[in-house]
């Protein structure tokens, strides 16, 4: 353990690289967590919005309303007029209020929001129901939030994949850095190793301190990265302010789960251990 202090500059360097690599993985994981959370929230409140033609008469609207209401899949139905839709939009996106007011017309069509009974309903069944309703010429468009949930979920998966790809490259780089740092340590302690071999030390006895050094570097680097990710999650919303409005819900961070934290620490340990092991295998042949 003395060597960790003895060669502190090179160890600080490798610690920084390991930390940065895991920060990248951690940041993307936390973004992906947020997207998955949003998708889950969206899925919980399962509803279909049917947008109607503006020029429909009240009786035509009533017919569509009845058709939707009597479907066995539907729990409740709520009719939303253009004015209510406009007010809701201004409430959700206050920064876009001026654009809407400058239009001088209300672009929102009347709509019927149907809340579905069972959130676990298969998507195919719902799509079949939507298609039935859509046959009605008064229905202009349909918005089904599960599709959005799926899209957000896919975005979450994509974010995670980008994180693992970028992080993976950096983790690989840290693997080589740990490997080289340990190689330098082996070189620096060449005479000690030689004496140990001559007095009958086993290979394991000689290798264990180097492997421990690698593991300590890896675990310390990944732990440090968790602190950095924690502070990023804390500080990022402060930095952004409310400039992104509702979009901020999507472009946000969520704390890593316990499993993810443990996986990152374990990953750090593995990077250190394997980096060290590869160096010893190549450089400390007995």
């Amino acid at each position: 353990m003395n060597s960790l202090w003895q060669f502190k500059i090179r160890h600080v360097f490798s610690l920084t690289i390991i930390c940065l690599s895991f920060v990248i993985v951690g940041v993307f994981l936390s973004m992906s967590n947020n997207l998955r959370f949003r998708a889950r929230e969206l899925s919980k409140n399962l509803r279909v919005v049917f947008y109607l033609h503006k020029d429909l008469t009240a009786s035509e609207r009533g017919l569509i309303d009845d058709e939707i209401r009597h479907s066995p899949l539907v729990d409740s139905v709520r009719a939303v007029g253009p004015e209510e839709a406009s007010e809701k939009f201004i409430e959700d996106f206050p920064e876009l209020k001026d654009i809407l007011l400058n239009l001088n017309i209300n672009p929102f069509p009347p709509s019927i929001e149907a809340s579905l009974k069972d959130p676990g309903l298969p998507t195919e069944k719902i799509i079949q129901f939507i298609a039935e309703v859509k046959k009605n010429s008064g229905v202009e468009d349909v918005q089904f939030n599960r599709e959005w949930a799926e899209k957000i979920r896919s975005l979450g998966r994509l974010t995670e994949a980008i994180g693992f790809f970028l992080g993976g490259i950096l983790v690989l780089a840290s693997f080589f850095i740990v490997s080289n740092v340990i190689k330098l340590n082996v070189l620096a302690r060449k005479s000690e190793i030689e004496i140990l071999r001559l007095v009958g030390a086993t290979n394991t006895f000689i290798r264990i301190p180097f492997l421990l050094e690698g593991v300590i570097l890896g675990v310390a680097g990944s732990c440090l990265s968790l602190f950095v990710v924690f502070f990023l999650i804390k500080l990022f919303p402060l930095y952004l302010g409310s400039s992104l409005g509702a979009l901020q819900e999507i472009v946000g961070f969520r704390y890593l789960t316990q499993t993810q934290v443990l996986a990152l620490i374990f990953g750090g340990g593995c990077v250190g251990f394997l980096g060290s092991l590869s160096s010893l295998a190549r450089f400390l042949r007995m």
Binding site: R197, L198, V199, G200, A201, T202, N203, M286
Partner: peptide
């Protein structure tokens, strides 16, 4: 790996 036993 058994040389260590001899060197001891």
């Amino acid at each position: 790996h058994k040389i260590c036993a001899i060197r001891r």
